[in-house]
Amino acid sequence: METVAKPWPALWALVLGFFMILVDSTIVSVANPKIMEGLNTDINSVIWVTSAYLLAYAVPLLVTGRMGDKYGPKNLYLVGLGVFTLASLWCGLSGSIGMLILARAVQGLGAALMTPQTMAVITRIFAPDKRGPAMGLWGATAGVAMLVGPILGGVLVDGLGWEWIFFVNVPVGV
């Protein structure tokens, strides 16, 4: 076990990435009408924008958690963050519904690489008696992200366009 003298800065970086992942699972639903209009598609196709992300995110979680054990959680987190960030850019630049669905699946895979690593890193860098507050912050982040996603989505879609629900991830990921 490798506890760190000052683990809180690392935790804030992990929590920011985790926040971004969870916001992305809820932000798209408010943009569906504008995506349908912008990409000239129907509701059945637009539902796959969210479904592809959630499937690519949830299905590989056990495998990506194990990969973190094998290759190191920091390494996998950083790879996942890179994939997620680039896929976010790809989503925003998509000119067709098929391209957007594919980009969202890649984005979900990036999220799947990141998520299990957050808890693994917390257990490695915090002493056992200090993990409670760290896990509390991690859990609170999940709750806040689920509330912020639809609100932020509405603001971005109304103010800048549906593409910005994806572009907003790029500076955060970088």
Score class of each variant (00 low, 15 high):
residue 1 M to T: 09
residue 1 M to Q: 13
residue 1 M to K: 06
residue 2 E to F: 05
residue 2 E to V: 11
residue 4 V to K: 12
residue 5 A to L: 15
residue 5 A to F: 11
residue 6 K to I: 11
residue 6 K to M: 10
residue 10 A to C: 12
residue 10 A to M: 14
residue 11 L to P: 07
residue 12 W to D: 06
residue 12 W to L: 15
residue 12 W to P: 07
residue 14 L to I: 00
residue 14 L to R: 00
residue 17 G to R: 02
residue 19 F to G: 04
residue 24 D to C: 01
residue 24 D to S: 05
residue 24 D to A: 01
residue 25 S to L: 11
residue 28 V to C: 05
residue 30 V to F: 12
residue 31 A to V: 03
residue 32 N to P: 05
residue 32 N to A: 08
residue 36 M to H: 06
residue 37 E to H: 11
residue 37 E to F: 12
residue 40 N to P: 00
residue 41 T to L: 04
residue 42 D to F: 00
residue 44 N to P: 00
residue 45 S to H: 13
residue 46 V to D: 00
residue 46 V to F: 00
residue 47 I to C: 04
residue 47 I to H: 07
residue 50 T to R: 06
residue 50 T to Q: 14
residue 50 T to P: 12
residue 51 S to N: 12
residue 51 S to D: 15
residue 51 S to W: 14
residue 52 A to P: 04
residue 52 A to E: 07
residue 53 Y to A: 05
residue 53 Y to F: 11
residue 54 L to W: 04
residue 56 A to P: 11
residue 56 A to Q: 06
residue 58 A to Q: 01
residue 60 P to K: 08
residue 61 L to P: 01
residue 63 V to L: 13
residue 64 T to G: 02
residue 69 D to M: 01
residue 69 D to T: 02
residue 70 K to V: 10
residue 71 Y to V: 05
residue 75 N to F: 15
residue 75 N to R: 14
residue 76 L to T: 11
residue 77 Y to P: 00
residue 77 Y to E: 10
residue 78 L to C: 08
residue 79 V to Y: 00
residue 80 G to I: 12
residue 81 L to R: 02
residue 82 G to M: 13
residue 83 V to G: 01
residue 83 V to C: 09
residue 84 F to K: 05
residue 85 T to Q: 03
residue 86 L to T: 08
residue 86 L to V: 04
residue 88 S to Y: 05
residue 90 W to Q: 13
residue 90 W to D: 10
residue 91 C to F: 12
residue 91 C to P: 03
residue 92 G to Q: 08
residue 93 L to R: 08
residue 93 L to S: 06
residue 93 L to W: 09
residue 94 S to E: 09
residue 95 G to D: 07
residue 96 S to N: 07
residue 97 I to M: 05
residue 98 G to M: 07
residue 99 M to Q: 15
residue 102 L to M: 11
residue 102 L to G: 14
residue 103 A to R: 07
residue 104 R to H: 09
residue 105 A to G: 15
residue 105 A to R: 15
residue 107 Q to W: 04
residue 109 L to P: 02
residue 109 L to T: 04
residue 111 A to M: 01
residue 111 A to W: 00
residue 114 M to F: 00
residue 117 Q to T: 02
residue 117 Q to Y: 02
residue 118 T to S: 07
residue 118 T to V: 14
residue 119 M to W: 03
residue 119 M to K: 03
residue 120 A to W: 00
residue 120 A to R: 04
residue 122 I to S: 02
residue 124 R to Y: 09
residue 125 I to Q: 04
residue 127 A to T: 10
residue 129 D to V: 03
residue 129 D to T: 11
residue 131 R to Y: 11
residue 131 R to M: 02
residue 133 P to K: 14
residue 133 P to D: 14
residue 135 M to W: 14
residue 137 L to P: 01
residue 139 G to L: 05
residue 141 T to M: 15
residue 143 G to E: 15
residue 143 G to D: 15
residue 144 V to C: 10
residue 146 M to F: 15
residue 148 V to M: 10
residue 148 V to I: 07
residue 149 G to F: 05
residue 149 G to N: 03
residue 151 I to D: 06
residue 152 L to C: 09
residue 152 L to K: 03
residue 153 G to Q: 13
residue 153 G to L: 13
residue 153 G to S: 13
residue 154 G to M: 04
residue 154 G to N: 10
residue 155 V to G: 05
residue 155 V to A: 07
residue 157 V to K: 13
residue 157 V to T: 10
residue 158 D to T: 13
residue 160 L to A: 12
residue 161 G to R: 09
residue 162 W to A: 08
residue 163 E to A: 09
residue 164 W to H: 04
residue 166 F to V: 08
residue 170 V to P: 04
residue 171 P to L: 07
residue 174 V to S: 14
